[in-house]
């Protein structure tokens, strides 16, 4: 902020973050995302693999797409103007895995112990739409 004044004289369009825009990268991110989600949809709708292995497969698709989008759409790299964005994202990813993963794990374990279907009153079946 303080020294922004002196810098404002230079052309903002020459900034590396403007200059890194790339039609090729954006279009490939687009094609990859649409394509892979399309394949995921096809696999799910047509039951191409067993439900048990389908979840890991589409989860892998999602993770692959998130990485691809970070590189191609968000343009993350280790250049001077982007390095801290990349570092902060790398530091945040484990927090995602911990907060979602540990939550799901502990509730899975909890449900297994205290919400077992064999227990009385636990046989509630999902109904259908009216």
């Amino acid at each position: 902020m303080t020294d922004a004044h002196h810098h404002a004289a230079t052309d903002p369009l020459a900034h590396p973050e403007v200059q890194q825009a790339s039609a090729a990268a954006y279009i490939s991110a687009y094609v990859l995302t649409v394509g892979l989600l399309g394949v995921g949809l096809f696999m799910t709708e047509r039951h191409l693999v067993t439900p048990h292995s389908l979840i890991p497969v589409i989860a892998a698709f999602a993770i692959f797409l998130l990485v691809a989008q970070s590189l191609l759409f968000l343009g993350l790299d280790v250049s001077h103007s982007n390095i801290w964005k990349t570092v902060s994202l790398m530091l945040t990813v484990p927090l995602f895995i911990l907060s979602i993963g540990l939550t799901v794990w502990m509730f899975h374990s909890l449900d297994h112990l205290v919400m077992s279907p064999e227990m009385p009153g636990m046989s509630l079946q999902p109904g259908t739409l009216q």
Partner: peptide
């Protein structure tokens, strides 16, 4: 700061999430 993110269940050990958790 890092370990802070993997300890929160100790506020409700008695929830009954089981020995492994």
């Amino acid at each position: 700061a890092g370990v802070a993110w993997a300890v929160w269940l100790h506020h409700f050990f008695t929830m009954g999430a089981g020995p492994w958790v």
